[in-house]
Structure formats: structure tokens, C-alpha cells
């Protein structure tokens, strides 16, 4: 009996709800530690990022104007879909070097984190909004509003949980995101795109690129249509570059050090608040 030939997966980008190859036609060879599996990962380019930004900008007003309840359900749905694809992620996480036990924990926590933020999507505004007692005959209230388009450099060491921990609060708050996946462990980031694809997240709300940080970080942080930039990591030069570039259009800068994303303290409504603006409205009270 002849051996069946495997169908190997092509890892592509996730932009605007589609899975294009990089427009540059370039690739990165990624191999597991034993060099037994070798795949080609898209080496995302400046133009891929630009295209993703166009998608993200196009999607943000629709996404932010959906009801909070609807966003909550969609986030929950992402959790459901991830639950259903455990095997695929087990395979990829173990290929990326985790033990089975570690991989299982990472998947469980990623799902739980999605559910955690699904639960916040229709509540955080209640926590962070208020009526202000001004000393004039005016009704004055403050509410949160999505910042807009967020560009993010995902944690490099935590390929799934790190990615999910960045994406979930950003989109729970009504933003859209373009995120650069872990450079060292990119496999399940792309698979996560497939989860998103099947989970009612509108195309363009979440866009995932793979490639070299060193190549894209400058573009991520300098793009004039980015409203907030998230950087995860400890590289001082990168951090400084991001902060310098943020000055170009006064982006919000949010930074997370290398940290154990499994800890509960790394999930919080305050993470949602980081990509929210504060809007205060005044109106006279009279007849």
C-alpha cells in the first residue's frame, strides 16, 4: 500500500476577512526545533500593512456602532470556534515547542480569556462612564468611545494566549486592529485567523500579519491613520522607535513588557480602557 501524501497547510495573511498571500511574494522559512517540519510563512510587507490598515479603517465605524451585546456575542463565538479547533491548535503549539500539557493550558486560557472579554464588552462602559455634577444647569456625562484603528506588535513568546490577550480587549471596546503575530511562533496566529473567519467577526476588524518585527515595526508605528500603537516586548530600541513615531500624529502608545500572560492580572477592564477615548457631552437642562 502506498503511503498517503499529506496535504500541507499554506500559511497566509489574514486581511479584510480574506487570506491573501503577501503582495511581496516573499516568505520566511519556519522550522520546528527538530527541523522535522518546515513551512513557509508570509513575510508581510509595508504594503500588506497598508492594505490591512485600509481594511481596518473601513471596518471600524461599523464595528464600533454595533451594539455592545452584539460584540459580546461575537467574542463569545470566537471562543466557541477556538474550542472546536483544539486539535489543530494542539498540533501547532506542540510543533512550536510546547508540551502537550502546556499547549492544553494555553488553549484553555485563550478560550477563557475570550469569554472573559466577551463578558466585559457590554459592561465596561458602565464601569467607566459617569454623570458629572457640574455647577451649572447642564446635564454632563462622560462615556468611553473606541479610539479607532489599533496597530499592535503581539507578544513574541506567547503565540496564542499573548495574541488573544491583545486582540480581545481591543475589539471588545469597538476598535479594529492590525496585529503583527509572534515572529518566533507564527503558526497558530494564522490559524487563529481561520477561527475568526468562521466566527462572525466582520472582515477587517481583525487583521493578522506575519513577518519580521524589525522590518514592520517602523511602519506600524509611523502610519498616520493609526490611532493607537501597542508594543509588546522589552527591546529598548524598539520601544523608543515606537514612541518617537507615535509623535508624528499623537498616537496613543500602550506597552506591555515580556510577561506571563497566563496570570489573571493580565486580564482586566482597564486593558479595554487603554484603547478608549473619553467623550464628555454637555447639554442645558431647561424647558
Amino acid at each position: 500500500m502506498s503511503e498517503r501524501i499529506n496535504i500541507q497547510k499554506t500559511y497566509k495573511l489574514y486581511i479584510g476577512g480574506k487570506f491573501p498571500r503577501t503582495e511581496s511574494g516573499r516568505y520566511i522559512k519556519w522550522a520546528d526545533k527538530k527541523n522535522s517540519t518546515v513551512v513557509n510563512i508570509c513575510r508581510g510587507s509595508r504594503k500588506d500593512f497598508r492594505n490591512a490598515m485600509v481594511s481596518a479603517r473601513g471596518a471600524v465605524s461599523g464595528w464600533s456602532s454595533r451594539t455592545a451585546y452584539n460584540r459580546a456575542q461575537i467574542l463569545y463565538r470566537v471562543g466557541e470556534m477556538l474550542e472546536g479547533r483544539r486539535d489543530q491548535f494542539m498540533a501547532e503549539l506542540t510543533l512550536q515547542g510546547l508540551s502537550k500539557k502546556q499547549a492544553e493550558k494555553e488553549i484553555n486560557q485563550s478560550i477563557d480569556r475570550l469569554i472573559y472579554y466577551a463578558g466585559w464588552a457590554d459592561k465596561f462602559q458602565q464601569i467607566f462612564s459617569r454623570v458629572n455634577p457640574v455647577s451649572l444647569p447642564y446635564f454632563n456625562f462622560t462615556s468611553t468611545e473606541a479610539t479607532g484603528v489599533v496597530a499592535a506588535i503581539a507578544p513574541d513568546d506567547s503565540s496564542l494566549l499573548g495574541l488573544v490577550s491583545i486582540i480581545a480587549p481591543v475589539i471588545a471596546g469597538g476598535n479594529s486592529i492590525v496585529i503583527m503575530a509572534s515572529e518566533s511562533f507564527p503558526l497558530c496566529s494564522i490559524s487563529f485567523g481561520e477561527v475568526l473567519y468562521t466566527s462572525d467577526v466582520p472582515g477587517g476588524v481583525i487583521n493578522i500579519l506575519t513577518g519580521y518585527r524589525s522590518e514592520l515595526i517602523d511602519h506600524f508605528s509611523s502610519h498616520m491613520d493609526v490611532n493607537a500603537i501597542i508594543y509588546c516586548g522589552d527591546n529598548e530600541d524598539d520601544k523608543k522607535l515606537v514612541e518617537m513615531n507615535a509623535a508624528l500624529n499623537v498616537k496613543h502608545v500602550i506597552q506591555f513588557p515580556v510577561q506571563d500572560w497566563a496570570k489573571d492580572q493580565h486580564q482586566s477592564p482597564y486593558h479595554i480602557l487603554k484603547c478608549q477615548e473619553t467623550k464628555t457631552t454637555w447639554h442645558p437642562i431647561g424647558v
Partner: peptide
């Protein structure tokens, strides 16, 4: 009512 008046602003 062709001309509406806002009370607080008028005050």
C-alpha cells in the same frame, strides 16, 4: 413654533 428659544442659553 418657527422660533424656538433655549431657556438656559437665554438666561
Amino acid at each position: 413654533y418657527t422660533h424656538l428659544i433655549d431657556q438656559v442659553n437665554a438666561q
